[in-house]
Each structure stands twice: as C-alpha cells, then as structure tokens.
C-alpha cells in the first residue's frame, strides 16, 4: 500500500471546500467574489469526481470533470459580461443593489 489515502478524507476535504464556497456566496456582497465562490464549489465537486474515478478505476468521472470545466468557462464568460454591463449602468456591482433590477 504505497500511497493509500482513505476516500473519506477526500470527501471531507471536498465538503469543507464546498462549504467555504457556500459561506462566501451568503456572506459577501461583491458580485465578483460571489462568482469566485461558485468556482470554488465547482472545484470541490471536481476533486471528488476525480477521487472516485480513481477509486473505481473508471475514466468516465474524469471525462465529466472535463465537461464541468467547459461549462464553468462558458458560465464565467457570460457572467462576467453581464457584470461588466451592470457596472456600466449602475457604477457598482453590489449584489444588494441588483435586487431591485426592474428600476
């Protein structure tokens, strides 16, 4: 058993990273920081997918991580474009100002 790490440790690590992302989304008002916390959550899930894919010796998990990365890249591109447009109109990216979007 040259390099055995229990899968539970990976689950714990991913859970902690995911929770940090969740707390960041709830506790911050800067929209860009919220985006970054979403990236953090996606990465926690990716890490767990890779760990289980290695555990079960099945490459499908790693291919799924590949697709998650593609979707995350698309999401970031569109989301940052929306934020840039919002900043141009409001001169702020405070998420609480965005709650009254209809005005």
């Amino acid at each position: 058993m040259l390099n055995g790490i229990p899968i539970n440790y990976y689950i714990m690590l991913s859970a902690v990273l995911f929770i940090i992302g969740v707390v960041g989304v709830m506790a911050r008002r800067n929209a860009i920081i919220i985006f970054m916390c979403i990236e953090l959550m996606l990465n926690a899930v990716n890490l767990l997918l890779v760990a289980f894919s290695t555990l079960h010796q099945d490459a499908s998990g790693q291919v799924f991580v590949f697709f998650v990365m593609a979707v995350a890249a698309a999401e970031v591109a569109v989301g940052l474009a929306i934020l840039a447009m919002v900043y141009r109109n409001l001169k702020s990216i405070d998420i609480d100002l965005l709650s009254r979007l209809k005005n």
Binding site: N3, G4, P6, T54, L55, A59, Q62
Partner: peptide, 18 residues
Amino acid sequence: QLTIVRAGASQIGLVKNL
C-alpha cells in the same frame, strides 16, 4: 469501511486512456 484510494498504479488519468 474506509476504502483506500490507490493512485500509484492508476493508468486512467493519462492522456491516451482519457
């Protein structure tokens, strides 16, 4: 049951297999 991840012999993460 604490299943152990043995990554040393794993070949699935290499570019060819993936």
